[in-house]
Amino acid sequence: MPLITKPNIADADGFYARLLATHKGLTEAQSHALNARLVLVLANHIGDAEVLTQALDLARDGAGQSA
């Protein structure tokens, strides 16, 4: 099964808002830690090695360059 790259979250704006709300009140270091945990939680949910590799590659793409 390939990584889903088409829109897949019904309420994208709602999710985005909840993501920011989850970080509310945290220092930058705490936010980084939360994000790291979130990556692990979601990665476990996905499980599939191929999808995870594609996700890692997609996330890495363009990293190290200015946005």
Binding site: A33, R37, L40, V41
Partner: peptide, 20 residues
């Protein structure tokens, strides 16, 4: 260290992080 600590944090709360 960020991810190591994230694993330890989660391992105390959920099963999945324990094997990590």
């Amino acid at each position: 260290r960020l991810f190591r600590d994230a694993v330890l944090h989660l391992a105390g709360r959920t099963d999945f992080a324990r094997p990590m």
